[in-house]
């Protein structure tokens, strides 16, 4: 028996609706969380000018001062350093795996990299404390003290190791797997004809990769980076363990810092007797959420348009 057209159409409609509902649910969740945070943060937002919150330098909850600038700046620094370290390394690794590595090497290395993603972040944190922090305190820090006196962002008088740099390094390693994995898939999805077209003109393999394959893969590579940065912005545990958690905006990568997620995780549920404290913490959670959303949207629209107009 053939199914009647009516029955098939009903199936079609049900399938479509079901997918709509699940999609609406997950998008709705983002708004629900944002709304919840906003409602809890409102007492503080209402009592203080927004400008003071964002750009206030002083964090003294017991005196009603809730300047979030140190935390915002700390988050931006740590994330930026993580991306500066991770991006070139990930891209090179992904290119090697996708273009140069023999099948056998790839089949061993890829699962290992994916395994990195499964390691709990507290383990990265411990590793950071045992390896990265001492290395910065004993080697890089003294080197900077002696040689980088006049270099902005790198000069320091002393570093205990717990620093923006330590946070950035640990974070970079934590975003490796996702950026490498996605980039590698994207590079491998570039059609063989594209490579052949360039090679047939006498381009070397490297020229082909640099000028054609990577260009063609750019939108996907961008998606990989957006994923990586989003993860980095919100990553809490490992960074909290190595960043030093001093509520002052860092001036050098060797300074300690206190990123937003660490602030929330360290303090929520502790000193709730202080008025507005809980409002301030949930307000910073809202800021973090808006950061990630804004970054995603900006990356997709701005870069997306650039790519469409000039390349694809």
């Amino acid at each position: 028996m053939y199914m009647t057209a009516g029955k098939r159409r009903i199936k079609d409609i049900i399938a479509g609706r079901a997918m709509l509902v699940t999609t609406a649910f997950s998008t709705g969740l983002v708004f629900a969380i944002a709304m919840g945070l906003y409602l809890r943060a409102r007492p503080l937002l209402a009592s203080q000018p927004l400008f003071g919150l964002f750009f206030g330098e002083t964090w003294l909850p017991s005196e009603g001062q809730f300047g979030l600038k140190p935390f915002i700046v700390g988050t931006v620094w740590v994330t930026a350093i993580a991306i500066i370290i991770a991006l070139p390394l990930c891209l090179l690794t992904a290119v090697f795996l996708a273009e140069y590595a023999p099948q056998r090497v790839r089949s061993i290395v890829k699962p290992l990299i994916d395994l990195l993603a499964g390691i709990p972040s507290v383990v990265y944190g411990v590793w950071g404390i045992l390896v990265v922090v001492p290395f910065i305190a004993d080697r890089l820090g003294p080197f900077a003290v002696a040689n980088l006196k006049s270099v902005p962002y790198l000069s320091t008088e002393y570093s205990a190791g717990f620093s923006v740099l330590a946070g950035g390094v640990v974070l970079a390693i934590m975003v490796f797997p996702v950026i490498i994995s996605v980039s590698e898939e994207v590079l491998r999805a570039v059609p063989a004809e594209q490579r052949e077209a360039a090679l047939a003109l006498g381009a070397t393999k490297f020229e082909t990769i640099r000028k054609v394959v990577i260009r063609k893969a750019l939108p996907g590579l961008l998606a990989a980076v957006v994923l990586g940065v989003s993860r980095a912005l919100g990553e809490t545990m490992a960074v909290l363990m190595v960043a030093g958690n001093v509520p002052m905006a860092p001036k050098s990568v060797f300074d300690a810092c206190y990123p937003l997620p660490a602030l929330i995780a360290n303090n929520y549920g502790e000193v709730m007797s202080i008025p507005m404290y809980d409002s301030a913490l949930l307000g910073s959670a809202l800021i973090l959420l808006i950061f990630v959303l804004f970054f995603n949207i900006a990356a997709r629209t701005v870069f997306g348009r650039m790519l469409r107009e000039h390349i694809q």
Partner: peptide
């Protein structure tokens, strides 16, 4: 390959 060029069946514009 510079001296002997090739044009394929399906056009492949570079990105």
């Amino acid at each position: 390959r510079k001296r002997v060029g090739m044009i394929c069946q399906k056009p492949v514009p570079l990105p």
